[in-house]
Simulated scan of single mutants.
Amino acid sequence: MTEAQYLAGRILLAMPGMGDARFERAVIAMCVHDEHGALGIGIGSVREGVTLHSLLTDVGIDPGGVPDGPVLNGGPVETSRGFVLHSTDWGGSGSVEVNPLCALSASLDVLRAIAEGRGPSKWLVALGYAGWGAGQLEGEMRQHGWYAAQGRSEILFESSVNARWAATWRAEGIDPSHLVSQTGRA
């Protein structure tokens, strides 16, 4: 696989009928993908019972004047580990640019900056991530489990959580109502 085929910076969409209920209609911001594996953050569903204010309070940060909002279900792996997908106008220790989509931070620095009003202009907070071992994601893609859409930051930061799956398909020029849950082979 050449570097051009790696999916960091793209949005991964679960195909209908992929066979894993944990990923039904999943929308994943792909942050790392190389010969060693892949890591993405789910951006298409809300983590029940957790809000930004409750998360900040749990980690000892005063929410200050930041508006409360949902925390996303980032994926089934390490569900207590936090990640922030954010605009590239803020960078802290350990922030990684995920071009052209966003930046990724996993330190408390970004949460403190957001709470204090000096953080990135756009951000999403998630708990957990989706991870794949070396070659695993490529195998799932060959089995028609995933579609790799272009990375569009407006999908992350300007679409509602529940609209991201369909909005990403539409941005690709595909009507999601025409997708079927079975594939064939010629």
Rank of each mutant, 00 (worst) to 15 (best):
A38C: 06
L72W: 00
T88N: 13
V84D: 06
G19N: 09
K122E: 15
D34F: 05
L56N: 05
C102N: 06
L55H: 14
S105F: 00
V110E: 04
D62E: 15
H178T: 07
S107R: 02
A106K: 05
A171M: 12
V84R: 01
L12R: 03
S87K: 05
L39Q: 00
V98L: 11
V96K: 12
G17N: 12
K122R: 15
G128K: 01
G173K: 03
A113E: 05
L111K: 03
G145M: 10
L7P: 01
S54V: 13
G64R: 15
A38K: 00
S87I: 04
Q143D: 15
H86G: 10
T79D: 08
P67S: 10
A21Y: 10
G37I: 06
R142Y: 14
G49C: 07
F83M: 11
D109Y: 11
G19V: 10
I155S: 00
L13V: 03
A134N: 06
Q143M: 15
L72D: 03
G133D: 15
G131T: 10
Q150H: 11
I11A: 05
T57R: 12
E158H: 08
T168F: 02
G82D: 06
P120A: 15
S80A: 13
F83S: 13
G40L: 04
A171S: 13
E35I: 08
S181F: 10
G42E: 02
G135M: 08
A130E: 08
E116S: 02
G184N: 12
E158K: 10
T79N: 06
P100I: 05
P67D: 10
E140C: 10
G75P: 02
G184K: 07
S54P: 10
V50M: 02
G82E: 04
L111H: 03
I41K: 02
V32I: 13
G184E: 10
V77I: 09
D109F: 11
N162H: 14
A186Y: 01
T88D: 13
G17E: 11
E154D: 15
S80C: 08
D109M: 11
R81H: 08
F157G: 02
W90R: 01
I11G: 02
W123M: 03
V98R: 06
L85E: 04
G173F: 05
F83V: 13
G94S: 11
Q136D: 09
S177N: 08
G133A: 14
W165R: 04
E138I: 08
R10W: 05
A26E: 01
G44E: 00
G139I: 12
I174G: 00
